[in-house]
Design a protein around this nucleic acid. Sequence first.
DNA 1: TTCAATAGTTACCAAGTTGTTACCGACAGA
DNA 2: TCTGTCGGTAACAACTTGGTAACTATTGAA
Lengths: 234, 234
Amino acid sequence: MVEKQYGCPVEVTLDVIGGKWKCVILWWLRRGARRFNELIQLIPGISRKVLTAQLRQLETDGLIHRQAFQVSPPRVEYSLTVYGETLRPITELMCDWGKVHAPEFRFGVIYLRSLRVLVIATDLTSQRIEGELGEFRDANVTVASLMTALENWSQIRPEVVIVDFALDEDFSPLRPQLETSAEDPQASIPAIALVANSQHRERALAQGFQIQLMEPVEIPELVAEIANLTGRLD
Amino acid sequence: MVEKQYGCPVEVTLDVIGGKWKCVILWWLRRGARRFNELIQLIPGISRKVLTAQLRQLETDGLIHRQAFQVSPPRVEYSLTVYGETLRPITELMCDWGKVHAPEFRFGVIYLRSLRVLVIATDLTSQRIEGELGEFRDANVTVASLMTALENWSQIRPEVVIVDFALDEDFSPLRPQLETSAEDPQASIPAIALVANSQHRERALAQGFQIQLMEPVEIPELVAEIANLTGRLD
DNA sequence: TTCAATAGTTACCAAGTTGTTACCGACAGA
DNA sequence: TCTGTCGGTAACAACTTGGTAACTATTGAA
């Protein structure tokens, strides 16, 4: 085979992440593993065949890892390899540019029809989440302080709780309330912790939050996480 | 028209710089204007038609500016707009990634057959330039100190001179030598200044260097500049 | 037994992108 | 007058990418 001639290093990078979908897939994988059908939901317009093809290419290029679990129904998870992580700065920059230069667009195609979401966060974060989830995703968002939330729990009846560790509060009083949901006494209410550093991360872990998202969180990711937790990915 | 639905901000960016060529074009324009035929030479594999189409798209997206000069033969220059500049971090990152992750490839398709190049630079820079230009581009590279160069000027007979302002020397003693070339007494010898900061830049300007390249310089760019200056773009 | 769910594969076709070739028009120089 | 250069355009060809539909394998549940 003739060795390919490159005119500049950019062409090398484009060989690996060029095309319509690869950067988008890498972006969705950048915080952790995603399942095949999850990606189908998250990436509007992609077909199964094309997603398969792109994932295979990324895999043979060593950027992502495919892990199949022998369960029923089958479960396949894709995640970035260490090599794939090296491309993260690029996808992050592309994400930032897109946000800055297309504020007129809203992102995401997943709707949270009337889902009751409780947000306990700083004013700025609350505003952002309430605006995006309430206005665009059709969620039923309640913003409250920890105390107010606990007092009015039976009125709010949250199906998902988002707490912001930037508030520097002890959220363990929430735990009894989260352990049984109003609808299904067997199930617990999913809770998402927003963390900004490793101290937050540790405290969130200690206070029983399994799901954590690094701030500043991208709304499409937050919605994906909520949809995942509440089984609304369909 | 239906407003396009985006799943994440990366897709917005890809709408603008997606495709096989746009990032490469932006990369070549990132340090200044380039002519149409220059780009044809610099980007291996692109056809006139496709280059035209890509440039038009970049222009209508507001990323580049097209300036036509009413001379014969025609002259058209493309350069980044202020808006296009905002994408530079992305192309730079893609360039860096390509360099790091494909050290086995060499870049550029332009050869400098036996061109006599004199390099007056720090050891590191000299090595890099000598290695790349000598081994891969077929140039005839001489590395020397300013003093040695001046003493042996008639043996070296440089057709291009590259001086590195990181040496912190006064290069004005070169000027008389540069003013008339050995081949053509009418012409002067083109000289390229490598600068690393604005102080270097000012000193280079004061000492009469019109062509300056910011360090760390990309070899394909340096070669393009040399080819330009010596009329070897063919 | 049949159905449903996940995560695909295969065949075939459509659409979009990219590439090739030929040519244009103005002017410069031989 | 002839030829060459620059920066294109037009018509068409080829290649790549994407879409649809049908099919597969596994397992658990109804």
